[in-house]
């Protein structure tokens, strides 16, 4: 029993089709609210964590303990004038931030969240091929960054876009290779091995324990995808001012900003679903959502520490790292996974 079915029951007097459409709309709305709230909490936690690591206090003026700071910031961004560069390529320029943000929210709709007490799961998409959907949507986000960089007619932004392309190509292949290993292992135990839910439910040990190399490769790919400090090549602030988002202001900039934080959260959720068992935990199954959030929160904190303690890697070193180390490691991981799968099948 999940939230979708409960909502459909609620609307069932309106007829079969209408009740399902309404149920989907309401659940999507619920999900957007969930994403927004988790982003706000995450940015607040990041700012407080960064402040404490640097022996500062952090936001503490707006609201109790500065809890409303992010809302104030968002209002400020909305209220700001949108400065548009004169030579921009209009449509891509305006489309790019929306693309980043919408694809981020879309990616959240695909993840399986696990049960939350009597409410049940609020997973929106019920499909047999959720992994393909998920990584398809994830691949849209970098396109938004590239579009932003190319369309804003700025040399810094263009360089940022070029770097973003080079970076994306070099981390997405190892990422997919390590996902492939998981699908392969799951296929030995479940017929629908492309569905995230059945991947989780069919495991007897979290995949992270079985293939730590895959976890390592995938986590690094997720760090690179969210583009924060060791790999924030697209918008390296000390070199390219702000990279692809140099010419953006107001809420359009805010979308890039939230896109980055959202990617950290999304990446942590995906890692915990694929490698750390996701909603499964030692206690009863109705706590699945809580377990997922706890696992994701720990990964988010690790990501923040990585962000705060590492300098930026050079673009050619990163491409080298991606092609010469990550891909071979992912291949080895694939072979190991094959061996494990064979053993598992027996």
């Amino acid at each position: 029993m999940n939230i979708l079915l409960r909502l459909q029951e609620l609307f069932s007097p309106l007829g079969h089709l209408a009740s399902y459409i309404l149920a989907y709309i309401f659940e999507s709305l619920f999900l957007v609210i969930f994403v927004t709230i988790s982003l706000i909490v995450m940015i607040y936690v990041f700012r407080k964590y960064m402040a404490r690591v640097q022996q500062r206090i952090g936001p503490n003026r707006v609201g109790k303990f500065g809890l409303l700071q992010l809302i104030a910031d968002a209002l400020k961004l909305v209220g700001k004038e949108n400065i548009l560069p004169k030579n921009r390529d209009d449509l891509p320029y305006k489309l790019a931030p929306a693309m980043v943000f919408v694809s981020l929210v879309l990616a959240f709709t695909i993840l399986p969240y696990g049960d939350f007490f009597y409410l049940g799961s609020f997973t929106v998409t019920h499909s047999e091929v959720t992994i393909i959907l998920l990584f398809g949507i994830i691949a849209i986000m970098p396109i938004g960054e590239v579009l932003a960089g190319i369309s804003s007619a700025n040399k810094y932004a263009l360089l940022g876009a070029l770097r973003a392309v080079a970076k994306d190509v070099s981390f997405e292949i190892p990422m997919m290779l390590s996902v492939l290993a998981i699908v392969m292992m799951a296929s030995a135990r479940t017929p629908s091995s492309l569905s995230l839910e059945s991947i989780i439910s069919s495991e007897f040990l979290p995949y992270g324990i079985l293939e730590p190399i895959g976890l390592f490769v995938f986590f690094i790919s997720m760090v690179a995808r969210a583009s924060y400090t060791p790999f924030d090549l697209g918008e390296s602030d000390s070199e390219l001012v702000s990279g692809h988002s140099t010419e953006y202001s107001g809420m359009r900039f805010g979308m890039f900003y939230m896109g980055m934080f959202g990617s950290i959260f999304l990446g942590s959720l995906i890692v915990s679903i694929l490698y750390l068992g996701g909603p499964s935990g030692p206690l009863e199954s109705s706590l699945g959502f809580i377990w997922l959030i706890i696992k994701a929160a720990i990964l988010v904190l690790i990501s923040f520490t990585v962000w705060l303690s590492m300098p930026r890697i050079r673009i050619d070193k990163f491409i080298n790292f991606g092609w010469k180390y990550l891909i071979p490691i992912a291949m080895i991981n694939l072979i190991l996974a094959g061996i494990i799968t064979l053993g598992w099948g027996l």
Binding site: T229, D232, P311
Partner: peptide, 16 residues
């Protein structure tokens, strides 16, 4: 120099 290379934290410790 930490900031130049993208490290945020050493800057604050230096300034403290």
């Amino acid at each position: 120099y930490g900031l130049d290379l993208g490290m945020l934290t050493p800057f604050f410790h230096c300034f403290i």
